[in-house]
Design a protein around this nucleic acid. Structure first.
Lengths: 207, 207
DNA sequence: ACCTGAACACCGTTCAAGT
DNA sequence: ACCTGAACACCGTTCAAGT
C-alpha cells in the first residue's frame, strides 16, 4: 500500500497495477494517491495530468513488448507474425489497458524503433515504405481489433444484456456453439491477411 | 435546446448528438438534461442508467447501418466488402462514437440479422459456420481497428505529444511522407484479407 | 405518469502555502 | 524539492416527494 518515497516510476507502476486490477475507470487520481499512501495531488508534482499518466503507462507497455528487439528471420511473413504475436501477448497480460492502448495516437511514433526495423525488412523484400506501413498498420489493427472483441469490457459496463432469442438465427447459433475461439480467429485471420499481402509480393530487390 | 416533451427517442437522439459534437466524455447526464431542457434526473425515468443509454445509442448506429438489408451479389467476397464498407461509412459519420461502438460486447448479437445472412451466404460458398464467423469477425476487427487508428481521440486526450526526433527513422519518415492515407490502407488491407480467405476457399456446395 | 429537491459519494485540477 | 489544505467546478445515482 505505502511506498518509502514517491517517484515517477512508482507512480506509473501503481497506475498500471490499478488499471490491471480495476480497469481504466478504476484509476482515479484519488485512488492512486491512496494506493501510494500519499495525498492525491502529490502525483501532480511528477506528472502534469491524468492524460500524461496514461501516456506513460502505455510507454511501459511498449517497453514490455520490446518491439525493437524482435529478431528477424529470413521471412518477412514470419517477422510480421512475430510482431503481431508479441503485441497480442503483452496486451493479453494487461487486458484492461487495451482501450487506452488502442486509442493512443502516438502509437505509430511510440514503436518507431520496431517499425523502422520492420519497414526496412519489408523494403528488402521489395515493398515500398508506403506499402510496408500499410501492412504493419493492418496487422496491428487486425490484432487489436480482435483483442477488443475478445476481452474488453464496454465503455460504461453494459447493463441490460438480455441475450435475445437466437432461435431465428440457426447458422449463427451453430457458428457460436463450440465456443468462440479467439486464438483460432487470430491465427486464421492473420494468416489470411499475410497470405493476401504475399500474393502481391514483388520480386525481391536482393536476398 | 428544449423539446416539447421528453421521450425515450428524444433522449437517445440528444445523446448521440452530444457525443457527435463533444465526444464520449462530453456526454454527462447533467449536460444531457440541460440539452433537453429538463432536470438531469428526468432521464432516469426512461433509461435505467448511463450504460444503458450508451447501449441505445449503439443500437441507433446499427439501425443506421441496416446490415440486415445488405443485398447479396453472386460473390461472397463482394458481400463481405460491402459489409465492411457499410460499417465503416456509418462509423465515419459518427467518429466519436467509435470507442463506445468498438467495446460494445453485444456487437455480435446486435447485428444478428446481418450476421445470419452473411453466414448463410458463406455457407453456400462452402465455408463452415465456424469459418464464416471467423471471416466476419476478422473483417469487422480490421475495419474497426483501422478506424480507431485513424480517427479516435485518445481515452484522456493526450498531452505532451511532442513528436520525437524522426531523423533516426528514415524509412518510417519516407513511409509517412506523402500522407497517411486511411482509405488506401482500408482498401489494400481488406483486399489482402479477403484474398487470403479466398485462397482457402473450398469447393462450393452448390451454385 | 412524469418530473424535481435534497442528498451522497465521488471526480480532476489549481494554487498558495507549508516543510 | 517535495508534499498538503482549501477550494472550484464538475460527476452518476437514489429515493422520497411533488404534480
Amino acid at each position: 500500500m505505502t511506498t518509502d518515497s514517491l517517484s515517477r516510476q512508482a507512480i506509473i507502476d501503481a497506475a498500471l497495477a490499478i488499471i490491471d486490477s480495476d480497469g481504466v475507470d478504476g484509476l482515479s487520481m484519488r485512488r492512486l494517491g491512496k494506493h501510494l499512501g500519499v495525498d492525491p495531488k502529490a502525483v501532480y508534482y511528477y506528472v502534469p495530468n491524468k492524460a500524461a499518466l496514461f501516456d506513460r503507462v502505455i510507454d511501459a507497455l511498449y517497453d514490455e513488448m520490446a518491439l525493437d528487439q524482435l529478431e528477424f528471420t529470413g521471412s518477412w511473413r514470419a517477422d510480421l507474425a512475430a510482431f503481431a504475436t508479441r503485441l497480442r501477448d503483452v496486451l493479453r497480460r494487461h487486458p484492461r489497458t487495451l482501450m487506452v492502448f488502442a486509442t493512443r495516437p502516438g502509437a505509430v511514433i511510440a514503436y518507431a524503433g520496431g517499425a523502422e526495423n520492420a519497414l526496412t525488412r519489408l523494403q528488402d523484400a521489395g515493398f515500398t515504405p508506403r506499402q510496408g506501413l500499410t501492412m504493419i498498420s493492418c496487422v496491428r489493427s487486425l490484432t487489436v481489433g480482435l483483442l477488443i472483441a475478445e476481452l474488453v469490457e464496454p465503455v460504461g459496463a453494459s447493463s441490460d444484456s438480455t441475450i435475445e432469442p437466437m432461435a431465428d438465427y440457426p447458422v449463427l447459433t451453430s457458428a457460436i456453439s463450440g465456443g468462440f475461439d479467439a486464438d483460432e480467429q487470430f491465427r486464421v485471420g492473420l494468416s489470411a491477411l499475410l497470405d493476401g499481402f504475399a500474393a502481391a509480393e514483388p520480386k525481391a530487390v536482393h536476398h
